[in-house]
Write a protein that binds this DNA or RNA. Sequence first.
DNA 1: ATCCCTAACGTAAACGTTTTCGTGTTAGTA
DNA 2: TACTAACACGAAAACGTTTACGTTAGGGAT
Lengths: 346, 346
Amino acid sequence: MKKKVTLKQIAKELDVSIATVSKALRNSKEISEDTRDKVKAFAKLYHYRPNNIALSLKNRKTKTIGILIPEIVHHFFSKVIQGIEEVANKKGYNVIIGLSNESFDKEVINMEMLANGSIDGFILSISKETLLKHDYHHFKETISQGMPIVMFDRVVNEIACDKVVVDDLRGAKKAVIKLIENKCKNIAIITTMDYVSVGKLRTQGYIEALNEFNIESNPNLILKVDDKLVSEDYIDVLEKEIMDLFLKNPDIDGVFAVNELYAITVMKVARKLGKQIPEELQIIGFTDGVLSRHAIPSLTTVSQHGNEMGAVAAELLIEKLESESEDEQVRAVVVETELIERESTK
Amino acid sequence: MKKKVTLKQIAKELDVSIATVSKALRNSKEISEDTRDKVKAFAKLYHYRPNNIALSLKNRKTKTIGILIPEIVHHFFSKVIQGIEEVANKKGYNVIIGLSNESFDKEVINMEMLANGSIDGFILSISKETLLKHDYHHFKETISQGMPIVMFDRVVNEIACDKVVVDDLRGAKKAVIKLIENKCKNIAIITTMDYVSVGKLRTQGYIEALNEFNIESNPNLILKVDDKLVSEDYIDVLEKEIMDLFLKNPDIDGVFAVNELYAITVMKVARKLGKQIPEELQIIGFTDGVLSRHAIPSLTTVSQHGNEMGAVAAELLIEKLESESEDEQVRAVVVETELIERESTK
DNA sequence: ATCCCTAACGTAAACGTTTTCGTGTTAGTA
DNA sequence: TACTAACACGAAAACGTTTACGTTAGGGAT
C-alpha cells in the first residue's frame, strides 16, 4: 500500500526544493526544461495529484457546493441535484449533500457542519418545519459571514439572497384554465396547508383562474391536506380525505392536484368510484415525475423542470463565487412551467 | 459582513497566544480558569467554529464519505443515499456525491477528483460502461493508495473490497416460485443484458426456479433488453419489444421483470392487449419504488431495501476508517430481499 | 540562598500547497 | 576586468489548526 505521494517526497527523492517541484509541475518557466521534465516524469510515475485539502486551505476556497434539501427520495429534488451536479462538475466543483428530513434542527446542524470551511456556498430548499417556525437565523448568520446562498423552490422573502423559483401561480392557473376550457364545471383542488409557500401560490393560481372565468370558488372544493406527519398510513389518510371530498361533492368533474402523489391518489379514488378518466373526470397534477409519466392513464401535469432549476441555481451561485465584485444585489430567476398533456385530460 | 473569526484573531484580541486559545477552547487544564472563561466567552460572542479544512489537513482525515453512483434520479439509488446519509451523519460524517451517468470516463474523473484528499473513503456502485469495459484500474489504484472502498449492488469479483449486495438470485427465485405456485404455466422474464451483474443473477434465479419445478426454460420467454442508450424514445422501444414478446407468445400468463419500469411497461402492454391483471396475467417486479406502490393495480415486487443497503455500507466503511488495525480482509454482506405482495398477483 | 516543582502560558513544528522574494552562478557587455 | 542581466533555484511565509515541548515566575522546602 503506497500512500499518496506529496511534493515533499518528490523533492527529497530528486534532491531539489519543494518550491522547485511545485513550479515545475505548474510549468513555471522559472525552472529549467531539464528539471521540469525530470520532475514531471517522476510525478507521473508515482501518480502525484495535489492534495485538495491543502489547496482549499491555501486558496480559502473549496470548490465545493453544499446542497441542503428536505429529502432525497423524491423525484423533484433528485432532478434538481442532477441539474446542479452537472453544471457544478463542468465548472470543476463538487457537491456535498445535507438532508434536513423536513426538520428544523437537522437543517441548522447540517448548515453549521458545512459552513465551517467545507464549502464555498449553499444551494438549498427550506424544510417545512423551518417554514412553520419562521426561524431563519441560520440563513442570516451564514450569509453575514460572507457565504452566499441560493434558495430554490421553497423560498422566503425575509432572506436576501438569490432565488430560483417556478412560476407556481401561473403554472397552477394554466392547469385550471385548461380544465375550464375542457368544459369542467366543478373543479376541485387538492393542495397543502398554506405555510408551504408553493402550495399557497398554487391554490391562489387556482382561485385566480376560476375568477378569470367568473366562476366563484367553492370552499368545499378546496381540500388542504395536512402532511406534517409522513407516516406509513399517510397514504390511507390522504385517500380517505379525497374519497370524502368526492362523496360530498359527487359532481366534481375536474381536479387540480398540487403534486403527483395527490393526483395519483385521486385517480385511485376515481377508479373505486367507477368514474372514467378523462371522460367523467379530468385530472392535472404538478411536478413531472415517474408517476405521472407511467401512470395508467398517464397524467397531464405541470412540469417544474427540476433539472433546469438546479442548473440555474448552480450557475447563479458559481457566478457569485467567482466574481470579484461584492455586488450585494440579489437576483430572482423564475423558471417557466410547462403543461404536459397526457391521457388524464381530454 | 463579518468574516469567519479564527484562533489567530481571538488570540490577538485577547493578547494571548494562539495555542492558549486553542487549549482554552478544548478545556485543557493547562490553562487557568480565568483565561479559559474569557476565551470561551469571546469565542461564543463571535461565533467561533473551528475551520474544517484546517482540521482535515492536520488530522489527515476529512470526516467525509464519497458516494459514486450511476444516477440519482432513481428510487433505489436515492434510497441508498438516504441510508448512507443517516448513519454517516449520526457518526459525524458528511457525504459528497459524484454521478457517473453510467459513463466510465465520468466515473474515473469523479474518483480522481475526490480521491485527492477530499474524502476518507468511497461507497460506490459501478457504472454500466465500466462493467462492459472490464476496466477497474481506478478502483485498484484508489485502494492501493490506502483509501477504502465499499461497493454495493453492482459489484465485481475482481476487486478486493467490502461489498453489500442483495441476494439477487434468491430474490428472483422467490418471485418466480411465487408465480409458479400461483399456477402460472408460461412465465416470461424481462431482464437486462448479462453484463449487468444483477440482471444476470436475476435471470439465473428465474431459470433455477423453473428447473426446481421441472419446467424447462424456454429461450423465447427470456427477453434481454439492451438499455445502453437511455434516450427519450427508449420507453417506446421497450414497449415494442415487450409487445412483440406477447404477440409471439400469447399464452404467457406470468411475468417476472427485473426492475420497476419493465414491470410497469408490461402492465401497459397487457392493458392494450386486453389482458386482465392478475386474472389472466400475473406480474412481479424488482425494486420497491413509488411506481410499484402506486401503480393501478399495484405491483407485487421484490424489495431491495435500499435504505438498509446504504446504512450497512456506511457502517462497514466507517468501521474500517476508525479501526486502527490494518485488517486487510474483505467483508461481503448480503441484504435479504423481501417479496411484497400486492394486486398484480393472485 | 538554593533547589525544585508546578501552574500558566508561549514557541514551533506539522499537515501540503503556492508564491513572493531572495541568492548564487553563469554569460554577456562595455 | 568589472559590471550587469538572465537564469535556475531555494527559503520562507501563509492558509487555520493541534500539540509536544519549552520557558517563566512564583512558592515551598531544605
